[in-house]
């Protein structure tokens, strides 16, 4: 995944530099630095450093792929040699699987989706209702064992936030279909 992040930054850097160069002048007609001078320096720096990162990530990926291939080959060879060693290797794979299982990518995707939904419905539903809906779904997902508590928490906390921002700070939160 690291390489994808680096590649995304690299592509965005190229787009930033290209857009800057095509829309802004680097020097004014008097030969002084123009509006595109600093953005060009920044964009060029970004392109260079993100490219270095992409190259490094690519090389690391290739090295780890070669290492994995070598390990797989050694494993194949050891299959013919020793059954005990085979058991140990399998155990190693399992423990690695458990380690990678300790990363909660699905939960992160859930959280991002819910935050996106929360913002998308903030104006149409209004602040209170969207906060309540967001909290109910999030707690149903992350804290499923205590539904009664979740409902109470999802109603009382948004109410407190509404009072804080709307009544005390007069922040003008979205009213939505409920009118508050």
């Amino acid at each position: 995944m690291r390489i994808w992040f680096s590649l995304t930054l690299f592509v965005l850097s190229i787009l930033y530099l290209a857009y800057g160069l095509s829309t802004l002048s680097i020097f004014t007609s008097a030969g002084r630095p123009g509006p595109g001078f600093f953005p060009t320096l920044v964009g060029a720096g970004l392109v260079i450093f993100t490219a270095i990162n992409c190259y490094k990530d690519f090389m690391e990926r290739r090295a780890s792929a070669a290492k994995a291939q070598q390990t797989a080959m050694e494993k194949q060879l050891s299959k013919f040699d020793d059954d005990d060693t085979n058991d140990q290797e399998e155990k190693g794979t399992n423990s690695q699987g458990e380690l990678s299982g300790q990363r909660y990518t699905k939960d992160v995707v859930w959280a991002i989706a819910l935050i996106t939904l929360f913002i998308a419905v903030l104006k149409p539903l209004g602040a209170i209702l969207s906060m309540v809906v967001f909290m109910l779904i999030l707690l149903w997902k992350f804290n499923p064992k205590r539904m009664k508590f979740n409902v109470l928490y999802s109603v009382l906390f948004p109410l407190g936030i509404y009072l804080l921002f709307e009544v005390w700070l007069r922040a003008g939160l979205p009213e939505g279909i409920l009118g508050y």
């Binding site: 935050i115 996106t116 929360f118 913002i119 903030l122 707690l139 804290n143 921002f165 922040a171």
Partner: peptide, 28 residues
């Protein structure tokens, strides 16, 4: 149980800055 507190404070707090939904998307 702390997750919803942080998200709600971040989203509502950002919206409250200038009542701007675009700034709230920038938060994401």
């Amino acid at each position: 149980l702390v997750i919803p507190i942080i998200v709600v404070l971040c989203v509502v707090g950002t919206y409250a800055l200038h009542s701007s939904i675009i700034e709230t998307w920038m938060l994401v």
